[in-house]
């Protein structure tokens, strides 16, 4: 499996560290909404098909990447810097999880 890092180009999966489900929304650190924290820590979408996930290019440029990968075929359809999310204020919303 190759992941095409936007900075380094196509690299073997062994250079990357999986950070898991990218759909989760971390509550505000000051939040005392236990249900929201529980959901953030324990609940996963786990789709069969396109999965929005975070990888770190830990054996390369060390940036965090938002990858859309098909969990049935391992085919990767998009890779982008996670930090772009914050620059544009575009955290994942429930409606674009599909």
């Amino acid at each position: 499996m190759l992941i095409t890092c936007p900075y380094c180009g196509p690299r073997d999966v062994i250079e990357f560290t999986y950070q898991g489900d990218g759909n989760r929304e971390r509550p505000d650190p000051a939040s005392q909404n236990f249900e929201a924290w529980n959901a953030y820590v324990y609940d996963r979408l786990n789709p069969a098909g396109d999965h929005n996930e975070i990888w770190q290019h830990s054996g390369g440029c060390r940036t965090h990447l938002r990858v859309v990968r098909n969990t049935l075929t391992h085919e990767i359809s998009s890779v982008a810097f996670v930090r772009g999310d914050h620059a544009s204020g575009a955290r994942r919303k429930a409606e674009d999880r599909s």
Partner: peptide, 15 residues
Amino acid sequence: GRVMQLAGIETMPIE
């Protein structure tokens, strides 16, 4: 995960 989604349960403590 797939079967629970058929029942309308979106998230599970499972990967």
